[in-house]
Design a protein around this nucleic acid. Structure first.
Length: 456
RNA sequence: GUAGGUAUAGCUCAGUUGGUUAGAGCAUCGGUUUGUGGUACCGAGGGUCGUCGGUUCGAGCCCGAUUACUUACCCCA
């Protein structure tokens, strides 16, 4: 059989030991913060029923979903007319009933509805799992990537929003980031803006356009708005809102002024104010909290607060986002349950930490000590010591005898093992083992017990 | 879906107007050293030059197609 050049699908990656150590540093840090704030972990299946996912992310999202072909002779049962007419949407529905999850929030909503009788509300859960998007990969963008989500359902309190800011601040600071911005906005403010210019139906077009302000500038946004059916008068009214400047307090004041005819817009202002008030007397470690009216985010299920986090230390898309969604579970038949959540983009955080050289040295050390023997007698002699080391919770291993010392030393060196123990005939006779510090190169003769004490 | 770029050893890449047997560094393995790595020296293995076709006496190099990867846009973490 002809051998196939080994490769992984576009936009996916292998994670080698050194990378896994660094990734786990990120995951462990974020998880520990989630737990500290009272969130409990769950997992959901990689695949969901297609009907669970479709329509939750907009048309674009439906396109970017990886669908799974039905098992068996799926074409036999396919919609013949749809196939004939090259109608992909209809045909897909008849040959695929499952899809890989696109994010963690919708599966969570499904989970909450399905398990509502077992859950005590407010329910705070976190989830760290991969998600899949059939996007064109590029820098910082993959087809399989990990999200770290924390959501709370069943609590309308804005205290949750305030705590999200604290979680972002604590977790990202712990990871070593020193300068990042948590942008906050409120969907009700966006609705209010649309209401003020009597374009309530065009809120999606409005948000998509003004979301691009920092990328394409005011003129770009105006051009985009014109293309999306807004007229010059609308744009004149929008300009002062889009170009809002000053401190958060000043921005809020200007917004209230601009939105005074829109009750929903004013409610959005109140909500943001409440979050700021909660945080007024709490100190943030490294985060800047900024009201950003141009922050819209693509997901159309958000109804209240919207978050996005950007690092100011390197050029990178957002490394986290979230918001409040009032009726996500309604789609699955459970009405009146509000939820809010945030997400960390672990893969992008990885790239940022790598670029800033922020991973701690210790992440690439796994084994603490390697026992080097010359023959099987040495193995038998040293195995009890190895067991003692492990009983003391010291990561340790013994290289199977037979290889040259040079080879074994190289092994220790390549694996970044800080200490080695040499066991030869001298050592076995005297009971004094050669204990070597691989970094300094120094070695000394010690009893097994002394070595154990040194490593503890 | 739109527009560019790239494709030569396991990895990163050289390769002269188109000219004998396609190179280097790193990595791997072996030796100098049958008890000492990170750091010396010597050596070895490893290639259908992405694929198919064309031009030419002759193609890694020029032309066409195709595939894969990649960057940016749309959109998004």
């Amino acid at each position: 059989m002809a051998s196939i050049k080994p490769s992984v699908p576009k936009g996916t990656r292998d994670f080698s030991p050194a990378e896994m150590a660094k990734r786990n540093f990120i995951f462990d840090t974020i998880k520990s913060v989630f737990k500290k704030y009272g969130y409990q972990q769950i997992e959901t299946p990689s695949m969901e029923n297609l009907s669970t996912l479709t329509g939750k992310y907009g048309d674009e999202g439906d396109k970017l979903m990886f669908k799974i072909l039905n098992s068996g002779d799926y074409l036999a049962k396919a919609d013949a007319a749809a196939l004939e007419n090259r109608n992909s949407n209809k045909a897909t529905a008849s040959i695929s009933e499952k899809a890989l999850r696109y994010d963690l929030t919708v599966p969570f909503a499904r989970y909450v509805v399905q398990h509502q009788n077992e859950i005590t509300f407010p329910f705070k859960r976190f989830q760290v799992q991969p998600v899949w998007r059939a996007d064109r990969p590029q820098k910082g963008r993959y087809r399989e990537f990990f999200q770290c989500d924390a959501d709370v359902v069943g609590s309308p309190s804005l205290l949750n929003e305030a705590e999200f800011v604290m979680i972002y601040d604590e977790a990202l600071s712990k990871l070593g980031l020193q300068d990042f911005t948590i942008k906050i906005n409120n969907r009700k403010i966006l609705s209010g803006i649309a209401q003020v210019i009597n374009k309530h139906d065009s809120i999606v077009d409005l948000t998509i356009a003004i979301d691009k302000l920092d990328k394409i500038g005011l003129n770009g946004v105006i051009k985009e708005l014109l293309e999306r059916g807004f007229n010059d008068a609308d744009i004149e009214k929008l300009k002062p809102v889009i170009l809002l400047d000053g401190s958060n307090t000043e921005k809020l004041a200007s917004l209230r002024d601009a939105l005074q005819t829109s009750p929903i817009g004013l409610q959005g202002c109140d909500e943001i104010q409440t979050v700021f008030d909660y945080l007024a007397n709490c100190k943030l470690q490294s985060a800047n909290l900024e009201l950003d009216i141009t922050l819209a985010r693509g997901l159309n299920y958000y109804t209240g607060a919207i978050f996005e986090v950007k690092t100011n230390e390197v050029a990178m898309g957002s490394i986290g986002g979230g918001g409040r969604y009032d009726d996500l579970t309604g789609m699955f038949g459970l009405k009146g349950l509000t939820g809010a959540g945030i997400s960390f983009g672990a893969d992008r955080i990885y790239d940022v930490l790598e670029e800033l050289n922020l991973f701690p040295q210790s992440t690439d050390q796994s084994t603490q000590v390697l026992i080097i023997c010359f023959d099987t007698d040495g193995e038998r002699y040293a195995l009890p010591l190895l067991q003692n080391l492990r009983n003391s919770n010291i990561n340790s291993e013994m290289y199977p005898a037979g290889a040259k010392v040079k080879k074994q030393m190289e092994y220790a060196n390549n694996k970044n093992i800080p200490y080695t123990i040499l066991v030869g005939s001298d050592e076995m006779q005297t009971g004094l083992l050669t204990f070597k510090n691989m970094q300094s190169g120094e070695q000394e003769k010690l009893t097994a017990e002394d070595i154990l004490q040194k490593l503890k």
